[in-house]
Design a protein around this nucleic acid. Structure first.
Lengths: 216, 216
DNA sequence: TAGATTGTTAATCGATTAACAATC
DNA sequence: TAGATTGTTAATCGATTAACAATC
């Protein structure tokens, strides 16, 4: 009850972008930046940057701007990149494979500790040094070690069942790759990656652009 | 110059959702639906549904609601699912592989006609019946057959170069999987899939939820 | 100090929701 | 016809942008 401010999703979804741009600035060896300069790089307004950052605290200094390294560290803390999240992948198909091989996740604090599938031929194999196990062994696995996030790359007709299964086991975070809007308990955090939605929007915009009425 | 209404991105991004829900209704053999019933299924307001649909036309009937099949067909037309888009994948890594194997895309009108990479060992192999070719052969390929969309699954430090390359060849649509905000010409449509952004937002929300200040 | 730039309040803009007349 | 539900206008809400006093 020290402080209670509600951060809007719009702001939250911009945080990783700030994080990326600041990380780039560090690579470029830039030490300080004003909201105006940053706004030009990011193609958003300086006002928005200052508003966004001030949801979390005053990280700048009048007349100077922001210290890049300091701001980067603060945003890292806000995003929780210092924390580690233990993740499992459910579904060892092509997308599950791709995720298991994505090296950047562990760099950001997301450790993949197990892969689960029902296909007998896959059980026991290794993907990027992570063991593929049978779904039946999931309960004992989750009992034996904490799992924060389940990444679901299962067929669409299985995703509701699997989501219920993993949340019943106490997993609170779902990264869902199925074209289904999961509806789970209030204490479950779901992030959806609807690839085909994204592709359809691309198709729509492309079609509209061709027809000349190019909307922002 | 017949009609000129600007559709907001917020509305456009909801179209694939309507499409999915209507497709489910058809499977359930439901013939008609009111905005109120649909709003309960989709967890959005009936007002929003009616506003959204009326951006494109009056598809309903007072006192009756919407004919499911008709509305589905209309939204399909709006989204352009009847059109076919010719696509290439650049980057035959894990994500490129996953995309090439994703059967749903062709169902939605997106045909993958070629995969390009620079890795000599991959050239000449087939992924899901699609030939992997060398990047050097991309110009002649694009000259020989129309390509609408380039799906970019290349390393982050290569994505700007590759994006320039493909847009110089006349490709107008980019589906970008790198954690980089591509900035290209006004006539180029870019859809980003920032997986690590999405995962970081999940991590943030999970952390906040644990600390009790669970924001919507 | 003077100039620059923040933090923050106020104004604007756009998107969502409510209301209701039109009409099937 | 009476009841239901749309299409659409008006009201509200929230997010973005502008402005500026505070201050480094």
């Amino acid at each position: 009850m020290i402080e209670e401010k509600k951060i809007s999703m719009a702001v939250i979804r911009r945080l990783p972008r700030y994080f990326r741009y600041l990380s780039d600035l560090i690579k470029l060896d830039i030490k300080r930046i004003s909201s105006k300069e940053l706004s030009e790089r990011m193609h958003i307004t300086a006002s928005q940057i200052r508003q966004d950052l001030n949801c979390f605290g005053g990280f700048g200094q009048q007349g100077y701007g922001y210290n890049v390294e300091y701001l980067y560290d603060e945003i890292s803390k806000i995003l929780g990149t210092n924390k580690r999240f233990s993740c499992i992948i459910v579904g060892a198909g092509n997308m599950g494979n791709a995720l298991a091989n994505y090296e950047n996740f562990s760099k950001r604090g997301f450790d993949i500790v197990g892969i689960f599938d029902v296909n007998k031929e896959k059980i026991g194999t290794m993907i990027n040094n992570i063991k593929v196990m049978h779904m039946d062994t999931l309960p004992e696995f989750v009992k034996a070690q904490r799992v924060d996030i389940a990444m679901l790359t299962v067929p669409n007709n299985k995703v509701n069942e699997v989501a219920t299964q993993v949340t019943d086991l106490g997993i609170k975070g779902i990264w869902n790759f199925s074209p289904t809007d999961l509806r789970l308990g209030d204490d479950i955090i779901v992030e959806n990656v609807h690839l085909s939605d994204s592709l359809m929007v691309l198709g729509y915009r492309l079609k509209e652009s061709r027809e000349g009425k190019n909307q922002k």
